[in-house]
Nucleic acid binder design. Sequence first.
DNA 1: ACAAAAGTGTTTAGATTACACCCATGA
DNA 2: TCATGGGTGTAATCTAAACACTTTTGT
Lengths: 226, 226
Amino acid sequence: MEFYKIHPQHYVSVDCVILGYQDEEIKLLLYPRSFEPYKGNWSLLGGFVEDYESADEAAARILKQTTGLEQIFLEQVCSFSDPNRDPEARVISLAYYALIRIDLHDEECVRENGAYWIPIRKLPNLIFDHQEMFEKALVKLQQKAGYSLVGSELLPEMFTMIQLRKLYEAILQRELDPGNFRKKILSLGVLERLDKKDTSESRKGAFYYKVKSNIGEIDIDRIIKF
Amino acid sequence: MEFYKIHPQHYVSVDCVILGYQDEEIKLLLYPRSFEPYKGNWSLLGGFVEDYESADEAAARILKQTTGLEQIFLEQVCSFSDPNRDPEARVISLAYYALIRIDLHDEECVRENGAYWIPIRKLPNLIFDHQEMFEKALVKLQQKAGYSLVGSELLPEMFTMIQLRKLYEAILQRELDPGNFRKKILSLGVLERLDKKDTSESRKGAFYYKVKSNIGEIDIDRIIKF
DNA sequence: ACAAAAGTGTTTAGATTACACCCATGA
DNA sequence: TCATGGGTGTAATCTAAACACTTTTGT
């Protein structure tokens, strides 16, 4: 213990890049910071790591508090530890990113926190290094989408191939060939076509798919070259 | 400041997975821990993050102290924050991994720290979660090797195609086809063939190559499928 | 000349891309 | 029947993988 005591301790926080998909856009949950410094400026949802919890648990707690959701995809982005990143105090922050289904989240929670879903194409300035946290998280999401099907995290249980493609286009920020996308995804064998059709977009209607339930962690080589 | 004060502070440490390449093997720098708890058990090289430095700077400082090297490839792996990971105190650790040229490192430094280069195929038990840190770092190295040429970080300035392939085989832990590897690497256009040959391994001799100096961060799609 | 390592070429299989075309259906 | 998205097929191109073959050179 002697050896430890000569070293300083630091506040450790967790900041969550909470991403959802709505209206063919990826959106980020932000709120106007409620305390100084930079009170009122846009901020990621965050909080401090307490004594009794790991950072992963802290991130899950914050996600629960702000969206009402549990057991959500949540992964570390990286740490941010510039001694001057927060002018008020030395705070080392661990960035996380979460993928949530906006259709499932608790709007009440979000309203209480004064938070808003903001399309990532029109982000305002963020406090501290939160912009960089978002950018790094987006790259992680793009990589994840390239190697696994992010459909189930961001879309409802049932979705059409077109909806899935639009999601991928929003994530990768480029257009994908409809025919090739369909073939590639179906060749993975992880989707099950349902009998139902979505007739809201066309006369013919588009079949709904869902992720096969017996699929654990499938071993996908690469879905999309990016 | 009021808002901050109600939260706890924690020790924050940095643990470095320092990797090098020697005798056709990837080796990890380890030392027998010099203080309690677990004094004498094998540990990564680490230290505490001080008030005046970022975690990146702390990692670079530790790397300098233990290998004598500066301006080395050094990247975050992820954070480890289980409240009980260190039985002595609550310590949140940020794992880093570094790639160094064993031929350049300061053996004096290493000896002073009682550290040893240990082939990753024969690692002993490590303290705390250091085994997991190593495993995550190795995956990161494998990914990095798949998308960029790790030759210059781990090999001397000049190397033969065979040496580069052996390095990749050690990293990916599988054999690669000599002909295909050569063609793939050369097609990237980042290597320059020198006039010199390495004649120690054969009559014919193998040309030395070096990384072209005018190459910044080249945009490589994927070198090796893995 | 030949052994042994270095380096090149060839063939095949599979993936990616671009894009043309067919299908189903309600108005 | 026709306009409109939904869905399928195909040819051209590129890449990966396996492996046979040629080159070089000291002995």
